[in-house]
Design a binder for these strands. Structure first.
Lengths: 386, 386
DNA sequence: CATTCCATAGAACACGCTTACTGTCCGGAG
DNA sequence: CTCCGGACAGTAAGCGTGTTCTATGGAATG
């Protein structure tokens, strides 16, 4: 279990942390790091440790004079409470964990921001890490956060429907739950087999439906769906919405027009260039997300294809780049930051600790909506190239 | 000290965490969360707690049969080690803290990515929080991370030269240092008064010099410097490099052409629109960063000013948006991710714990270089508007 | 003046884990 | 046959705080 984890994280071969034998005990003289403890403060202030603790926590009457002496002692000693000891003694660690694929991807960055802000409101700190799309890494991080006794562990982003992975995650969910923490699924489907999790979703399928319909209304029927890992739940849902819209308008999906791949700009660029070269027939592009759209836009530009006059282009997520592209990108807005906030709310309750609404196994689905900008136009009558 | 902090973080009025009196002790029955402990595992496997610990840490010989029994017990009980207890018992908490202004700003996101990756290599987890440009918040977070005994606390981004703030941060640095942790300054000047810190800088002044010179070489002499908080060290350095370049080429800086403000897109957009309306005379714009450049580009576009034919535009940081703008933005590349990596290296040593190179008070300065794209052209002979 | 009560403060234990220090058992050397 | 060393395993002492439970002094009450 341990070696597996170390491996998953790319750590050299850490045995968690082999003792480094710091020659502890019997701190005679300069024994390396040594911080002031409650005991030190107590001695200096001429009181007991209990009193010091009470001064810090303000949960028990302490005479004004005593309080001041203690506070002075703390200041003079540069005392900083040890959160580990505090947590061990029963208090919550006041920490929430969040696991994303990639911090520099705005999709995750916005969610992370929501999580961080909501956590800070509750006086909590945030453990953040990047699984980089590797399920093993993700599981390893969940475990690491459980070890830290995070109040909640939030896993963000689509997931693959691998059975081994799912049941493994479900096990972690049960363990966390047994310890009073919560696993929160953010932007991915539930774990089935009634694992005790909370969940925040967004109407992914609905957004895809809406923007596809927007394209259909402009006369487009041959719509290229470009990018997104094919086995990812995110892609499945977007494609499902896309197809539902097509079928509702009576246009039968052409398999050739579904071109999944990855969520990268580079994929959007290259695949679009290839398809253009191959002369695939289509009048609009539904990029799996705005990043892919940015890549596609560049390929279109370099091929001399005008957007939206010759070809319409839409994305998904509505991250800032959508406003920088020219033409500005029509896309689907997802309430990313709010998802992050709700994720921590669901797990630890509102900042107000008093409303003891048992953070039950709740699920939440936020709405999406399309944002119309300049990258869509009615289907042009002439061929893409002449 | 406590109330101050709670206030700084916008927490309602958390007394850190008032007892919530969980009616502990005497766990008779369903006493709420209860996780398996080493003792439970030991009992189940029929060994002592010491042996269980040895199985986990692999730092002492344990008979194969015993090991297997212990591991089985751990599995059956769903045992997850308590990192708090472990840290308290002497081991490092295996945590590094990073404080940025804003997670969704790519400048910080890239640095955070470097920190996170390097930390993960050493089997460490990352505490991340956003100070949102508020020095008080920043100090509060440093303290919070110190409480958690982070191996290193990395503060990222420019700082204001306020004396009270500086000395307060220096005090935190000394306290951290006294405890064996390290405060790392990332992208900001040192603290003076020999505070025990490590530092990773980038050649900010040099980059500004280089890109200004690039503009000068194209014949531009009236260069507008746009954006960036005027009192921030980042702005000071960039302006210094900018001025040095001007003076070296014998053009005297015109105060009217220095228009600091903020680092936001919105500021770039609005201020640029105003200056255009007011008819300020300039042929090139040096935006304080790429975000501001994006805003300025939009204002220019809306005013019908062509870039680079009528006016040249450059940015700073080389974040992804620089490649999406049209024309693509010429800017200064900063090795952001590498800065993050170096910051944790400096503080905790390379992933290899053995090279016991005392993580001394080191400083490091990484180079910057300009990236030429399409937003600069030789000065046009005709006036901006006719 | 004796009794009760409140406001404080101290002593001591529990939290879960690591590790120095002590064994114990066994095979092989003397 | 005794002695010694190696391979394991157990005992117990902390690590720094929170939180009982108990004690003390004086004010308030009868």
């Amino acid at each position: 279990m341990n070696p597996t984890r170390a491996q998953a994280l790319g750590s050299a071969s850490h045995n968690s942390h082999q003792g480094v034998s710091r020659m502890r005990r019997q701190s005679t003289a300069a024994d390396g790091p040594r911080r002031a403890t409650v005991t030190d403060v107590a001695r200096r202030a001429g009181v007991s440790t209990a009193t010091v603790s009470r001064v810090m926590n303000r949960n028990y009457p302490v005479a004004e004079a005593t309080r001041e002496r203690v506070e002075a002692a703390m200041r003079e000693l540069g005392y900083v409470v040890n959160a580990h000891a505090r947590a061990l003694a029963g208090a919550s660690g006041r920490t929430v964990g969040i696991i994303v694929n990639e911090l520099i991807d705005p999709f995750y960055a916005y969610i992370a921001r929501g999580v961080e802000r909501e956590a800070a409101l509750g006086g909590r700190l945030c453990l953040v890490c990047c699984a980089q799309g590797d399920p093993q890494r993700e599981l390893a991080f969940v475990e690491l956060m459980h070890e830290r006794r995070a109040d909640a562990v939030i896993v963000v982003g689509g997931s693959v429907a691998d059975h081994g992975y799912t049941s493994e995650l479900a096990r972690r969910a049960r363990e966390l739950d047994a310890g009073g923490s919560k696993l929160v699924l953010c932007g991915r489907p539930p774990l089935g087999e009634q694992a005790p999790t909370a969940a925040v979703e967004y109407d992914n399928e609905g957004g895809a439906f809406a923007i596809t319909d927007h394209l259909l209304m402009q006369g487009h029927e041959r719509i290229l769906y470009l990018g997104g890992p094919p086995k990812l739940s995110t892609t499945r849902d977007r494609l499902a919405g896309h197809r539902r819209a097509l079928e509702l308008r009576g246009v039968t999906p052409d398999p050739e027009l579904a071109q999944p791949g990855t969520f990268s700009r580079n994929f959007g660029y290259r695949r679009m260039a290839e398809l253009l070269r191959d002369g695939l027939d289509f009048t609009a592009v539904f990029a799996a997300n705005d990043i892919v759209a940015a890549g596609a836009a560049q390929a279109l530009e370099e091929a001399g294809v005008r957007v939206p006059e010759d070809i319409s282009l839409v994305g998904y997520d509505d991250i800032p780049v959508a406003q920088e592209l020219r033409p500005r990108l029509t896309t689907v807005h997802v309430p990313l930051e709010e998802m992050g906030r709700q994720a921590v709310r669901l797990a630890v309750g509102g900042g107000d600790e008093d409303d003891w609404r048992e953070p039950t196994t709740g699920a939440l689905r936020l709405g999406t909506h399309i944002v119309v900008r300049d990258s869509v136009a009615p289907r042009s009558s002439r061929a893409i190239r002449m």
